[in-house]
Amino acid sequence: MQVRVDTPGGAYPIHIAAGRLDELAHSIPDDATAVALVTNDTVSALYGTRARAALAASGKPVHVIELPDGEGHKTWETLNRIFDALLVAQLDRKAVLVALGGGVVGDVCGFAAACYMRGVRFVQAPTTLLAQVDSSVGGKTAINHPLGKNMIGAFYQPLAVEIDTDVLATLPPREVSAGLAEVIKYGMIADAPFFDWCEAHAQALRALDPEAVRHAIRRSCEIKARVVSRDERDVGLRAILNFGHTFGHAIESGLGYGQWLHGEAVGCGMVMAAELSVRACGLDAAVVERIRSLVAAIGCPVRAPDLGVDRWLDLMRVDKKVEGRVIRYVLLPALGRADVQGVDDDLVRPLLASGRLIEGR
């Protein structure tokens, strides 16, 4: 199964299949001089030997760069560990980096590829559901800053995205739920019938039913590829992919990176954004309840931590969609349609004090 991404920064395939990890050598160009396999200690223990053997079939020397696991390590220090390893190994501009892991590995490895020698090629081999349907596709690479998530990075497209659906079998249930938050997002913003399908198959998806998972990954990648192809650099349409993320990133920053998984924060953030959509652009309240129910059904929280109203607003102002200190939110005029608009803080404050949305209120 293949989905194509076409952008000014590069056109590439997304391959989706069981056992795709064993085919990684096919994504290494003939003129590559070496391969750097960038992974973390958790994924390395599970799939590092297998991935290294697959890449060695390309006939290129393979260097393994193992990073610590977790969102808290999406930092300058981790980025420099990659640069140090590349320089010690004396890899040149024709080396290819391969990101084997979840969104943190993919983002940091991609950013390293964008910067090393002003740009070397890289391949995404995502091992979490969230990375397979979201972060590995579209060329967004970044590290976090203490003051904001993904605030330092680059747009840099991979050579290919290699999605092996078999690796999802080793994901903890919490990681599966976090990935499903990004799956159901695509139905909310761009495909109401897909949202209906997700409602009907929520339990099959949580159980990682192979047929359901393949369909969910394919459809999610198709929607993201279509959006990214029309707006590679996030200056217009692509912003709709951040539905729920303004609230979600505030949760992650406010609690400390890693306390909630990214998908958990986004799932809760989508409920909050849906509630705001009722007030700001007339979304039917019945749709909000469907969204709340589906977020809960996939296993994500639907009530946010109590960060304090002013703290919430301060955190959300550290967002790439902010213009002139006005926070711009991705909202839903209707299920399957998304728009971006500035919303006055006075309309948001009641939500941030609501017992329906905030724990302990």
Rank of each mutant, 00 (worst) to 15 (best):
G139I: 08
A56P: 03
P126I: 05
D30R: 14
G236S: 14
P350A: 00
V123Q: 04
R81T: 13
D84S: 10
Y186Q: 08
T49L: 06
R317S: 04
E182D: 10
G254C: 08
L168Y: 09
G9T: 02
P333W: 10
P61S: 03
A45P: 11
A202S: 14
A34S: 15
L46T: 04
H145R: 01
C281N: 02
R303I: 01
G258C: 10
V88C: 01
W312I: 07
N144I: 07
V62D: 03
P173D: 07
D134V: 13
L332F: 11
P301N: 02
L255R: 14
M117E: 02
D339H: 10
A204E: 15
M270E: 05
A286P: 11
L97A: 15
V96G: 04
E66L: 00
L24Y: 06
F194M: 06
E71D: 11
H73Y: 15
V88N: 00
V287A: 14
V287N: 11
A54R: 09
V108A: 03
E323S: 14
R233Y: 03
R174C: 04
M316E: 00
V88L: 11
P193Y: 07
Q124K: 11
K74Y: 06
P29F: 00
N40R: 05
R206N: 09
E264Q: 15
C115D: 00
E71S: 10
E77M: 00
A338M: 01
F155E: 07
R292F: 03
R4I: 09
R81M: 12
A154V: 08
F195R: 09
L55M: 06
A56Y: 00
A280F: 01
A18V: 01
L159Y: 03
L261Q: 13
G187M: 03
F155K: 11
Q90H: 13
C198K: 03
I163Y: 08
G48V: 01
I217Y: 05
L241M: 11
L315R: 06
K320W: 08
D339P: 01
T165Q: 03
H249F: 12
R4Y: 00
E289K: 09
M151N: 00
I65L: 07
H63F: 10
A280R: 08
Y47P: 04
G139F: 05
L283P: 08
R361E: 00
Q259A: 13
G248T: 05
V137T: 11
A334E: 15
F155M: 11
H215C: 10
L335T: 02
P172C: 07
Y12K: 14
T33Y: 05
M1P: 10
G70Y: 10
A45E: 13
H262I: 13
L46C: 07
R20S: 13
G324K: 06
A112P: 15
V133S: 04
L352N: 07
T141H: 13
A25C: 07
G187K: 06
L352D: 01
A85R: 12
M151A: 04
A204L: 12
M270D: 05
V235K: 14
E77G: 14
R292S: 04
L24E: 06
V35L: 03
I28R: 03
V213P: 11
P8C: 09
E199R: 06
D31N: 13
D41A: 10
S135D: 04
Q90E: 14
R361Y: 15
